[in-house]
Amino acid sequence: MAVLHGRALMMGDRRIIFSSYGYLFFFGAAVVMAILATGAKVVFVLGGTLIFAALFHREALRLFLRWQLLFFILLTLLLSPFVIGQKDIALWGLNLSREGFWAGLWMVLRALSIALAAGVFAGAVSVSQMAQLFERLRLKGLGFAVGVATNMLPTVQETMETSYNAVRLRGGFRRHRLETLKLLLVAIIAGSLRRGDDIVSAAEARAFDPARSQGPALHGTRADVVLMGVVSLLGTVLVMM
């Protein structure tokens, strides 16, 4: 939870260049371009995404340290020369396909572009801004619900831990495991809902109206317009090339 609050504060202190709309557009454009760019063109998509991430949200580059991703990259690069295309080269006694190797490489670069763009969007847009983006889709009160959920998360986790320990200490998992699991879920939900009543009372006491938008309204910036123009132009050129 401290991480969430810490990040929200950091977002507040940082000089805003692009708004949530800008980052959303960037993410959408990166996904569309990665899908439409064929063959080696995907190098440009990854290059553009890397430059954007390095300039505006460096934390997203930590993606490259994730071992699951590295495992998938390695697996795709190793497997594709064996299973894609005609085998036209022999290496250390293995028959491999050049076409397969290149196809595997483009697949990996495409996956990296999309994953990196998603990382930039998720890291740069705060929880409240994300909720506001959804509220624009006529999901009124979502911002409030996300706020309550964020604050409830440690309480729910604590309830889970307490209930699990109570069940375990009574030897609940030794026999009738399914029944115990059901009881555990019931205890967690009932415990969390009881605490929810206090939140309802507090919100109603403050005359909270979910129909009204919460927090400052989202506004686009000039940088968003420039970003949209540049990305649209480069994207069109890349796809038409």
């Binding site: 006529r138 999901l139 009124k140 009160g141 409030f144 619900a145 996300v146 706020g147 309550v148 959920a149 409830m152 998360l153 309480t155 729910v156 986790q157 889970m160 967690i188 939900i189 969390s192 809902l193 605490r195 929810g196 939140i199 309802v200 919100a203 109603e204 909270f208 979910p210 129909a211």
Partner: peptide, 25 residues
């Protein structure tokens, strides 16, 4: 979609429970 305060709090709680399960388990 318009929800009352109580309904939104319940939505938040069930979202938090599902989220907590995803984050822990």
């Amino acid at each position: 979609m318009k929800f009352s305060v109580r309904e939104l709090v319940y939505i938040a709680i069930f979202g938090a429970i599902w989220g907590a399960l995803e984050l822990t388990l």
